[in-house]
């Protein structure tokens, strides 16, 4: 019952972006307000990051169709390759290194956290395969949506 301590679905969703788990509908519509500052702009970041994100950042998240693509590695990448990719992306997208507000980096980190652990990577790979097949079988017109990895529980959904 409600007395039990159960954390929100965030963790399980993380490993299965775009699968058939119903999204808590109540939260989705916060997307617009989610654009508000993810934190006081760090000392170098200027006020312009409040609502607008630099175009280049936006595209990184939009274009990625899988966690592998987000990290810019092959699906067969070794752990070392994944770590290397993560670190070089960190140097570009970490708020300390860029004007970013941290959302991109949180996304990159999440991808890294999933793929750097053999267990979670295996789970992710299996969902990836399943979704591929489903899409292939003809998920009419909604393919782009199915592939989206940018469903972010802690960011977008947290208004």
């Amino acid at each position: 019952m409600s007395g039990t301590l159960v954390y929100s679905a965030g963790n399980s969703l993380r490993f299965s972006p775009g699968n058939s788990l119903p999204q808590p509908k109540t939260i989705r519509s916060f997307n617009r307000t989610a654009r508000f500052p993810t934190g006081a702009p760090s000392f170098r970041a200027s006020a312009q990051t409040l609502n607008a994100e630099p175009a280049v950042m936006e595209s990184v998240r939009r274009r990625a169709s899988s966690l592998y693509e987000l990290l810019k590695v092959n699906e067969t990448a070794s752990l070392t390759e994944i770590k290397t990719a993560y670190r070089s992306l960190a140097k570009v997208y970490h708020p300390d290194a860029s004007e970013s507000d941290g959302r991109d980096f949180m996304e990159i980190h999440k991808a890294y956290a999933t793929l750097s652990d053999p267990t979670t990577r295996a789970i992710y790979d299996s969902t990836l395969g399943a979704r591929r097949r489903r899409v292939h079988a003809g998920a009419m017109g909604r393919t782009g949506r199915v592939y989206t990895t940018t469903r972010r529980w802690e960011t977008d959904q947290c208004w």
Partner: peptide, 25 residues
């Protein structure tokens, strides 16, 4: 819904929102 946000400069912000089942905002 209680949301917490820590930015790169370690500033903490806490958000709270009330939702009702069926309502979308």
């Amino acid at each position: 819904n209680v949301c917490m946000d820590i930015d790169a400069s370690n500033a903490l912000r806490v958000f709270a929102a009330v939702l009702m089942p069926g309502s979308s905002s």
